[in-house]
Simulated assay, not measured.
Amino acid sequence: MKASEVKDMTPDQLQDELLKLKKEQFNLRFQGASGQLEKTSRVRQVRRDIARIKTIQRQREVAQVKG
């Protein structure tokens, strides 16, 4: 997921995507612990997508307070 895609999302869409990614991260952690994880790079990608969404949410929050 690219930052430009995240910026185009509405706050509700961001929240839904964040929830989906956190569930996926949880499942990936279990797969890794049990030795069933095939795409180890996906863990890093999901973690970065979560951070990207949280960053955009925070930027919007700060912009509302200032504006």
Rank of each mutant, 00 (worst) to 15 (best):
E17W: 09
E17T: 11
L18D: 04
L18W: 04
L18F: 06
L19A: 15
L19T: 15
L19W: 12
K20T: 12
L21K: 07
K22H: 11
K23H: 10
K23A: 09
E24P: 01
E24G: 00
E24Y: 01
Q25E: 12
F26N: 11
N27D: 15
N27Y: 07
N27I: 03
L28Q: 00
L28E: 01
R29M: 08
F30D: 12
F30L: 13
Q31W: 02
G32M: 11
A33L: 11
S34K: 10
S34W: 04
G35N: 04
Q36L: 09
E38C: 07
E38K: 13
K39G: 04
T40C: 07
S41G: 15
R42A: 04
R42M: 05
V43H: 03
Q45C: 05
Q45P: 03
Q45T: 14
R47W: 05
D49K: 12
A51V: 04
R52T: 09
R52Q: 11
I53P: 01
T55Y: 13
T55R: 15
T55W: 14
T55G: 09
Q57S: 05
Q57G: 05
Q57T: 04
R58L: 14
R58N: 15
Q59T: 07
R60V: 03
R60G: 15
R60C: 05
E61I: 05
E61A: 11
E61V: 05
E61P: 03
E61F: 09
